[in-house]
Design a protein around this nucleic acid. Structure first.
Lengths: 278, 278
DNA sequence: CTAGTATATCTGATATACCAGTTGAAAAGA
DNA sequence: TCTTTTCAACTGGTATATCAGATATACTAG
């Protein structure tokens, strides 16, 4: 609703630093050494920022629009068109679209067109259980590692979320929600698993955008988060996991309703045997 | 070693079919309709094969060499050089490299060069626990869903692995191993989770290529797999999960040894606080 | 009016050209 | 000999050109 979804791109590729490169000591047999210019070697660009490329920008923008359902499934996305709108060449646009294709957010049909991907129904249950399992790992670790200041930090995040709920700001609420889960992963010392969770969450999030913002749900979420924090504070790992699983199970809405409402937004890919091992 | 690693690219993007596209009924406000030529609409290319592109080929080849440690961390990979070797233009090569970058298999430094990524030490523990959690999900589901024929199929896969172990064929052994875990995910009706597992496994696999093929380990693995199958056959989900976790825990080798042996193959990225949420 | 076909015009895939940082070693200075 | 400076070669990022497949429309035959 209000303003653009910022959709904070948490820990994304771009932020990281190459961190310097050692000389490729073992010159590989298969790959020939460059005639002049020995292997790149030494500190390769400690550049604080791996300069945000145009492709990054376009990717972020398109991804935002897709996840926020501003671009509904089936919408055609033309490389040329986007290039014109963004006033760049088709190359970076293409790179952005390729990334989206890997995230399963668009489907590209070779000589026909690229379209915003429909939500694969079969992927939803998978995403839910996968997320449940992964968040179980992070919250258990968090309960085992959290110190006092980190617990306080989590409380602060919950409060931020409560405030967003009170003033009915779904965008801020959503962001606080993400930050909370991310913080738990970080405190559990498994930041990389949060990346995985985010990846899995994408399709779920798209689906949830379809559901109307359920009244009262926002307050409940904050309460459930607080229950998780209390378990972490108590150092009760099993309880923390249980609380988190309860929380995640709450968003198990039945899909059928929305299936009728927007049938074209989904693709019914039955779990047919797709692998035929020789 | 004997012959090229085939590194069966299990369920990869390419195999899937676009599956036809419905007319983009809701013409999105944000995106303008194409002047002539209404939206692509109808069955867009039921093409059995989304024609394997050159980029796919190059990607597969490079990925294979990296995962198999034929290209060790730090090795420079030049777009131009690969293009010349493969006798194609830089464009598809670039696309392949971009994909590898997303898989964290290469690091590209903008105006300097692209290098085979060092193994991020901090990612290893994360990958191990994430895999454990995810395989727990799939094996539990498999125990709940497996029918007689599927159990037999699993037995067959274990036997294939035993045969590979007997004739000391690590490549076939490795492939059988992958197929076994993939089959469990498929039987558990969570094929998508196998994709996740594979993604997480990559760095672990690279690391494991460094370790010498431990004598006797191959036979043990087959035995452990069989134990999992028996639990599945008995329909004992909890036992199956336990057996699988025992199995996965066995490959918990201490890293320090190999760290000394090939220090330049790893990057020590301590779990410093990388996210600073506003 | 309908069915079939031809064609204009989309599309993404690939090839090529150009640009601006980066780098390493030669060149210059001490 | 050692340090500093310069600079040409090489890199990945971007722009542009070309190609062939896929589609929708216009056209033709009946």
């Amino acid at each position: 609703m209000s303003g653009d979804d910022q959709e904070n791109e948490q820990s994304r590729r771009s932020t990281e630093i190459p961190a310097g490169y050692p000389r490729a000591q073992a010159e590989i047999a298969t790959r020939r050494r460059r005639s002049p210019n020995a292997p790149p070697a030494g500190r390769a660009a400690f550049a604080v920022q791996t300069g945000t490329t145009i492709a990054d920008t376009v990717h972020r923008r398109l991804r935002q629009d897709i996840v926020s359902m501003k671009l509904v499934p089936g919408t055609p996305i033309s490389e040329k068109e986007v290039a014109l709108e963004e006033k760049v060449s088709r190359t970076p646009v293409r790179e952005a679209i390729l990334r989206l294709a890997e995230e399963r957010l668009v489907e590209v049909v070779p000589k026909s067109g690229t379209f915003v991907a429909r939500i694969p129904m079969s992927a939803l249950p998978e995403a839910i259980v996968a997320r449940r399992a992964l968040e179980g790992v992070t919250v258990r670790a968090a309960a085992q590692h959290a110190n006092r200041s980190q617990v306080t930090e989590l409380v602060s995040l919950v409060q931020r979320q409560e405030e967003a709920a009170e003033r009915g700001d779904p965008v801020a609420f959503h962001r606080a929600d993400e930050d909370f889960h991310a913080a738990i992963a970080r405190i559990g010392r498994y930041p990389g698993i949060w990346d995985l969770i985010q990846q899995v969450k994408v399709q779920i999030d798209r689906y949830r955008r379809l559901t109307l913002p359920q009244e009262g749900r926002m307050d409940m979420v904050a309460g459930e988060h607080l229950a998780v924090v209390r378990a972490i504070e108590a150092g009760d790992a099993d309880l923390a996991v249980a609380r988190m699983e309860e929380h995640l199970d709450k968003l198990q809405l039945d899909i059928s309703v929305f299936l009728d409402m927007w049938p074209d937004y989904f693709v019914h890919d039955l779990p047919f045997d797709e692998r035929l091992l020789a």
